[in-house]
Protein backbone atom coordinates (compact mmCIF):
# COMPACT_ATOMS: atom_id res chain seq x y z
CA UNK A 1 0.00 0.00 0.00
CA UNK A 2 0.97 3.62 -0.26
CA UNK A 3 3.29 4.82 2.42
CA UNK A 4 4.34 8.43 2.44
CA UNK A 5 6.22 8.13 5.73
CA UNK A 6 8.92 6.23 3.86
CA UNK A 7 9.83 9.57 2.30
CA UNK A 8 10.56 11.23 5.61
CA UNK A 9 14.18 10.06 5.85
CA UNK A 10 14.75 11.82 2.53
CA UNK A 11 13.38 15.18 3.57
CA UNK A 12 16.81 16.76 3.21
CA UNK A 13 17.19 15.36 -0.30
CA UNK A 14 13.87 16.86 -1.37
CA UNK A 15 14.61 20.19 0.27
CA UNK A 16 18.05 20.28 -1.31
CA UNK A 17 16.52 19.62 -4.72
CA UNK A 18 13.87 22.25 -4.14
CA UNK A 19 16.53 24.80 -3.17
CA UNK A 20 18.51 24.04 -6.34
CA UNK A 21 15.45 24.41 -8.55
CA UNK A 22 14.56 27.66 -6.78
CA UNK A 23 18.04 29.14 -7.17
CA UNK A 24 18.28 28.16 -10.83
CA UNK A 25 14.83 29.56 -11.50
CA UNK A 26 15.52 32.86 -9.77
CA UNK A 27 18.83 33.36 -11.55
CA UNK A 28 17.69 32.34 -15.01
CA UNK A 29 14.40 34.22 -14.83
CA UNK A 30 16.30 37.44 -14.22
CA UNK A 31 18.97 36.68 -16.85
CA UNK A 32 16.47 35.36 -19.39
CA UNK A 33 14.22 38.41 -19.15
CA UNK A 34 17.26 40.68 -19.52
CA UNK A 35 18.33 38.77 -22.64
CA UNK A 36 14.75 38.87 -23.93
CA UNK A 37 14.48 42.61 -23.34
CA UNK A 38 17.73 43.33 -25.15
CA UNK A 39 16.92 41.03 -28.05
CA UNK A 40 13.36 42.34 -28.35
CA UNK A 41 14.68 45.90 -28.51
CA UNK A 42 17.14 44.93 -31.23
CA UNK A 43 14.49 42.96 -33.09
CA UNK A 44 12.12 45.92 -32.98
CA UNK A 45 14.45 48.88 -33.44
CA UNK A 46 17.83 47.55 -34.57
CA UNK A 47 19.33 47.62 -38.04
CA UNK A 48 18.51 44.88 -40.54
CA UNK A 49 21.51 42.57 -39.93
CA UNK A 50 21.09 42.62 -36.15
CA UNK A 51 17.34 42.10 -36.51
CA UNK A 52 18.04 39.03 -38.64
CA UNK A 53 20.57 37.70 -36.17
CA UNK A 54 18.04 37.93 -33.34
CA UNK A 55 15.33 36.36 -35.48
CA UNK A 56 17.64 33.44 -36.27
CA UNK A 57 18.42 32.94 -32.57
CA UNK A 58 14.74 33.01 -31.64
CA UNK A 59 13.72 30.58 -34.38
CA UNK A 60 16.59 28.22 -33.60
CA UNK A 61 15.66 27.98 -29.94
CA UNK A 62 11.91 27.89 -30.40
CA UNK A 63 12.09 25.09 -32.94
CA UNK A 64 14.39 22.67 -31.17
CA UNK A 65 13.75 20.63 -27.99
CA UNK A 66 15.10 22.10 -24.79
CA UNK A 67 16.76 18.82 -23.85
CA UNK A 68 18.70 18.83 -27.12
CA UNK A 69 19.83 22.41 -26.46
CA UNK A 70 20.93 21.35 -22.99
CA UNK A 71 22.79 18.26 -24.22
CA UNK A 72 24.47 20.28 -26.93
CA UNK A 73 25.75 22.79 -24.40
CA UNK A 74 26.80 20.22 -21.81
CA UNK A 75 27.98 17.27 -23.95
CA UNK A 76 28.59 18.98 -27.29
CA UNK A 77 30.56 22.08 -26.43
CA UNK A 78 33.43 20.19 -24.71
CA UNK A 79 34.31 18.85 -28.19
CA UNK A 80 35.29 22.37 -29.16
CA UNK A 81 37.09 22.91 -25.89
CA UNK A 82 34.34 24.52 -23.83
CA UNK A 83 33.95 22.47 -20.67
CA UNK A 84 31.08 23.49 -18.41
CA UNK A 85 29.87 22.22 -15.05
CA UNK A 86 26.29 20.92 -15.00
CA UNK A 87 25.28 24.05 -13.12
CA UNK A 88 26.90 26.38 -15.63
CA UNK A 89 25.45 24.50 -18.57
CA UNK A 90 22.02 24.66 -16.95
CA UNK A 91 22.13 28.38 -16.33
CA UNK A 92 23.22 29.01 -19.91
CA UNK A 93 20.64 26.66 -21.44
CA UNK A 94 17.74 28.02 -19.37
CA UNK A 95 18.75 31.64 -20.00
CA UNK A 96 19.07 31.11 -23.74
CA UNK A 97 15.73 29.32 -23.80
CA UNK A 98 13.79 31.89 -21.79
CA UNK A 99 15.61 34.66 -23.64
CA UNK A 100 14.32 33.45 -27.00
CA UNK A 101 10.73 32.97 -25.91
CA UNK A 102 10.58 36.21 -23.98
CA UNK A 103 12.07 38.07 -26.95
CA UNK A 104 8.94 37.36 -28.94
CA UNK A 105 6.66 38.18 -26.02
CA UNK A 106 8.38 41.46 -25.14
CA UNK A 107 8.55 42.47 -28.77
CA UNK A 108 4.79 42.21 -28.96
CA UNK A 109 4.64 44.69 -26.09
CA UNK A 110 7.08 47.07 -27.75
CA UNK A 111 5.23 47.06 -31.05
CA UNK A 112 2.05 47.89 -29.17
CA UNK A 113 3.34 51.28 -28.03
CA UNK A 114 1.63 54.03 -30.05
CA UNK A 115 3.85 56.09 -32.34
CA UNK A 116 2.59 59.17 -30.53
CA UNK A 117 4.52 58.18 -27.42
CA UNK A 118 7.76 58.22 -29.39
CA UNK A 119 6.88 61.51 -31.03
CA UNK A 120 5.97 63.12 -27.72
CA UNK A 121 9.31 62.07 -26.25
CA UNK A 122 11.15 63.24 -29.35
CA UNK A 123 9.66 66.72 -29.34
CA UNK A 124 10.57 66.97 -25.67
CA UNK A 125 14.18 66.38 -26.69
CA UNK A 126 14.59 62.84 -25.38
CA UNK A 127 16.94 60.51 -27.25
CA UNK A 128 16.26 56.92 -28.28
CA UNK A 129 17.63 55.27 -25.17
CA UNK A 130 15.92 57.70 -22.80
CA UNK A 131 12.62 57.16 -24.59
CA UNK A 132 12.94 53.40 -24.56
CA UNK A 133 13.84 53.18 -20.89
CA UNK A 134 11.73 55.99 -19.44
CA UNK A 135 8.69 56.03 -21.71
CA UNK A 136 8.31 52.77 -23.60
CA UNK A 137 9.35 49.88 -21.37
CA UNK A 138 6.85 50.14 -18.53
CA UNK A 139 3.67 50.32 -20.65
CA UNK A 140 5.12 47.70 -23.02
CA UNK A 141 5.77 45.25 -20.19
CA UNK A 142 2.37 45.92 -18.70
CA UNK A 143 0.68 44.66 -21.84
CA UNK A 144 2.57 41.38 -21.98
CA UNK A 145 3.12 40.77 -18.26
CA UNK A 146 0.71 37.82 -17.94
CA UNK A 147 2.30 36.08 -20.95
CA UNK A 148 5.78 36.74 -19.62
CA UNK A 149 4.81 35.37 -16.21
CA UNK A 150 3.53 32.16 -17.80
CA UNK A 151 6.67 31.77 -19.87
CA UNK A 152 8.90 32.09 -16.82
CA UNK A 153 6.86 29.42 -15.08
CA UNK A 154 7.09 27.15 -18.12
CA UNK A 155 10.86 27.48 -18.06
CA UNK A 156 10.92 26.70 -14.33
CA UNK A 157 8.90 23.51 -14.98
CA UNK A 158 11.14 22.70 -17.93
CA UNK A 159 14.14 22.83 -15.65
CA UNK A 160 13.13 19.31 -14.55
CA UNK A 161 15.16 17.88 -17.43
CA UNK A 162 18.33 19.32 -15.91
CA UNK A 163 18.40 16.18 -13.77
CA UNK A 164 19.50 14.44 -16.97
CA UNK A 165 22.91 16.10 -16.72
CA UNK A 166 23.02 15.34 -12.98
CA UNK A 167 22.04 18.74 -11.69
CA UNK A 168 20.67 17.89 -8.26
CA UNK A 169 17.36 19.63 -8.66
CA UNK A 170 13.92 18.62 -7.45
CA UNK A 171 13.40 16.00 -10.13
CA UNK A 172 16.84 14.57 -9.49
CA UNK A 173 15.85 14.25 -5.83
CA UNK A 174 12.65 12.43 -6.75
CA UNK A 175 14.52 10.01 -8.99
CA UNK A 176 17.09 9.39 -6.31
CA UNK A 177 14.55 8.77 -3.55
CA UNK A 178 12.37 6.39 -5.52
CA UNK A 179 15.42 4.42 -6.64
CA UNK A 180 16.39 3.97 -3.01
CA UNK A 181 13.06 3.12 -1.39
CA UNK A 182 11.03 2.09 -4.47
CA UNK A 183 8.27 4.48 -3.47
CA UNK A 184 7.86 5.89 -6.98
CA UNK A 185 4.21 6.87 -6.61
CA UNK A 186 4.72 8.74 -3.35
CA UNK A 187 7.95 10.27 -4.46
CA UNK A 188 6.55 11.73 -7.66
CA UNK A 189 3.32 12.87 -6.06
CA UNK A 190 5.25 14.85 -3.51
CA UNK A 191 7.54 16.22 -6.22
CA UNK A 192 4.62 17.20 -8.43
CA UNK A 193 3.04 19.02 -5.51
CA UNK A 194 6.29 20.88 -4.89
CA UNK A 195 6.41 22.00 -8.52
CA UNK A 196 2.79 23.04 -8.27
CA UNK A 197 3.61 25.03 -5.15
CA UNK A 198 6.58 26.64 -6.88
CA UNK A 199 4.51 27.60 -9.89
CA UNK A 200 1.85 29.16 -7.68
CA UNK A 201 4.49 30.96 -5.65
CA UNK A 202 5.99 32.39 -8.84
CA UNK A 203 2.62 33.58 -10.07
CA UNK A 204 2.05 35.20 -6.69
CA UNK A 205 5.43 36.96 -6.64
CA UNK A 206 5.06 38.13 -10.24
CA UNK A 207 1.65 39.43 -9.27
CA UNK A 208 3.08 41.40 -6.36
CA UNK A 209 5.81 42.91 -8.51
CA UNK A 210 3.31 43.72 -11.25
CA UNK A 211 1.00 45.43 -8.81
CA UNK A 212 3.82 47.69 -7.74
CA UNK A 213 5.34 48.42 -11.13
CA UNK A 214 2.03 48.89 -12.92
CA UNK A 215 0.37 50.75 -10.07
CA UNK A 216 -0.69 53.46 -12.50
CA UNK A 217 -3.56 51.28 -13.70
CA UNK A 218 -5.04 50.73 -10.29
CA UNK A 219 -4.43 54.14 -8.82
CA UNK A 220 -7.54 56.08 -7.97
Amino acid sequence: MLNFSDLLPYTDVFLGGLATTLQLTLLTTVLGVIVGTLCASIRQYGNKPSQRAVAAYVELIRNTPFIVQLFFIFFGLPSIGLLLTPWQASVIALTINLGAYSTEIIRAGLSNIPKGQWEAAKVLGMNFRQTLVRVVFTPAFEKIYPALTSQCIIVMLGSAVLSQISVQDLTYAANLVQSRNFRAFESYVVTALMYLGLAMLMRYIFGLIGKRVFAFREAS
Binding site: P114, G116, E119, A120, A121, T138, F216
Partner: peptide, 11 residues
Protein backbone atom coordinates in the same frame (compact mmCIF):
# COMPACT_ATOMS: atom_id res chain seq x y z
CA UNK B 1 4.51 70.58 -29.67
CA UNK B 2 1.07 69.46 -28.54
CA UNK B 3 -0.78 66.65 -30.24
CA UNK B 4 -4.39 65.83 -30.97
CA UNK B 5 -4.21 62.73 -28.78
CA UNK B 6 -2.31 64.34 -25.89
CA UNK B 7 0.32 61.59 -25.86
CA UNK B 8 0.87 61.80 -22.13
CA UNK B 9 2.98 59.00 -20.69
CA UNK B 10 0.38 56.73 -19.02
CA UNK B 11 2.69 55.20 -16.42
Amino acid sequence: MIFQNFNLFPH
